[in-house]
Design a protein around this nucleic acid. Structure first.
Length: 417
RNA sequence: CGGGGUGUAGUGUAACGGCUAACAUUCCUGUUUUGGGAACAGGCGACUCCGGGUUCGAAUCCCGGCGCCCCGACCA
């Protein structure tokens, strides 16, 4: 991608109506656009990051048997009535609307009931189970207060997986697999070292749910981390009885602020009972399907990465989710330099390496450097009179202070390593 | 939803109740530049959030609405 063609550009000033670091940097660097409080559009750079995050999640969900679908954002009232969740007193974040004939509809807050109802058409026998179905789909939540940039929004894409199992034992096997998949996701996205599986309140049907909490001072939640065991306890379930049942000692725990980047939940038969999702066992007995739900918000994940990985100059993207792998800067516009830069650009493209080429001829070196630091692509390579005179390309990682001159092959090795 | 704050060119800010609403940046024209947001010259861009009120006179004071930010509550 040539930067001269990119429709976004960076801003010098921070937005006045954003206090959070994630929104400030993402808006300045041109990754997102704020439409209104809690509603953000994704621009080319931001969308590339989101797609990479989604693909990592997709790979991990597929690896544990997930099958991807997309359900609708428009939902019928009757879908949510059996669990009493159409009631605004039960679910207070509904956006509701109407057909022309006054039929009430809701904009999807979540999809447990919708998918359970849908599955009644496809699951009748123990032979049809287990099934693991997921989607990346837009949720609408009429939050009383959107906040923290893209961390808590009114419209957002969520990866939600639903598991349909014959019984609790079968469910538990998948549930444990999902924990590992989630750990892989956060590791691959680049925040594994700060993310803890966290015991949280489980609602009516299980003692705990599990949250994945990433340590950051801007987090909404308070958790107590046992560093040695690599687990944490959400403050909401923190008491002596819980500590005892988990075999955790109070003195091993450190209190931290954290943001919930994922949540896995045993639903049991709440929805299958209410919506009639049943199957016949081998013995011909009718049983309710045993369910779980598993959520991650790619947008919030992106925001969390920015909160956790940045410096005073800008974002520092982990390689796996960076919008591009290489930021190629052309400094000075004489023919030799341009030729050298164009040449490197096409060679990298041939090798299948994603590169953002700052080919702007009317932009000063300082501005290009500043933009590059702000956008935060992992590798910066400079082609200039100086680098050409030095006989190579000047490569610097975003996290490094100083660059070095390398040949094309050396550069390639660096990128592939 | 309670409390606090805030609203002025695309963006960030300034302006005692009083002159043509100022500065920077972005953008446009030209010249000159190209290793850390370059220099010079010229130019475009504002119904000061909306509606009322007070006043000879309102961006400025008052009332109402709306937007945005923060704290809290909420987070199925």
């Amino acid at each position: 991608m040539k930067q001269s063609q990119l429709f976004t550009k960076t801003k010098k000033e921070s937005p006045a109506d954003e206090a959070s670091l994630n929104a400030e940097l993402l808006i300045k660097a041109g990754f997102i656009n704020k439409e209104m409080a809690g509603v953000y559009s994704y621009l080319p750079l931001g969308l590339r990051v989101i797609k990479k995050i989604e693909n990592i999640i997709r790979e991990e969900m597929n690896a544990i048997g997930g099958q991807e679908v997309v359900l609708t954002a428009l939902q019928e009232k009757s879908t949510w009535e059996p669990t009493n969740q159409w009631d605004d007193n039960q679910v207070d974040v509904w956006f509701k609307t109407k057909l022309k004939n006054d039929t009430e509809l809701g904009l999807a807050v979540t999809h447990e009931a919708a998918i359970t109802r849908m599955m009644t058409s496809f699951i009748q026998s123990y032979r049809d189970l287990p099934k693991y179905v997921y989607q990346f789909q837009t949720k609408f939540r009429n939050e009383a207060r959107a906040k923290s940039g893209i961390m808590r929004t009114r419209e957002f894409v969520m990866k939600d997986l639903y598991s349909f199992s014959r019984n609790e034992e079968e469910h538990n096997i998948f549930y444990e697999k999902s924990k590992e998949a989630y750990k892989n996701i956060f590791k691959r996205v680049g925040i594994g070292h700060l993310t803890y599986i966290t015991f949280a309140s489980g609602g009516m049907f299980s003692k705990f749910s599990h949250e994945f909490q990433t340590i950051t001072s801007t987090g909404e939640d308070t958790i107590f981390v046992d560093e040695n065991k690599g687990i944490a306890i959400n403050k909401e379930v923190y008491n002596d009885e819980v500590l005892g049942s988990l075999g955790i000692k109070k003195e091993d725990l450190v209190e931290n602020k954290a943001v919930e980047v994922g949540n896995i939940f045993t639903l049991s038969t709440r929805f299958s009972d209410a919506l009639g999702l049943k199957y016949k066992t081998e013995e011909g007995e009718e049983k309710a399907v045993f369910m779980g739900s598993y959520g991650i918000g790619p947008g919030r994940l992106m925001g969390t990465v920015v909160e956790v990985l940045s410096d005073d100059k800008g974002i520092i993207w982990p390689e796996n989710i960076a919008p591009f792998k290489v930021h190629l800067l052309m400094l000075g516009g004489d023919d030799n330099v341009r030729k050298g830069a164009e040449d490197l650009y096409s060679k990298l493209n041939e090798k299948g390496i994603e590169v953002l080429f700052d080919d702007r001829s009317d932009t000063s070196a300082g501005e290009k450097f500043a933009d590059s630091d702000l956008i935060g692509i992992p590798y910066r390579v400079v082609v200039s009179k100086r680098s050409l005179a030095d006989g190579g390309y000047e490569v610097k990682k975003r996290i490094e202070e100083k660059g070095k001159i390398v040949s094309f092959d050396e550069f390639l090795n660096l990128l592939i390593a």
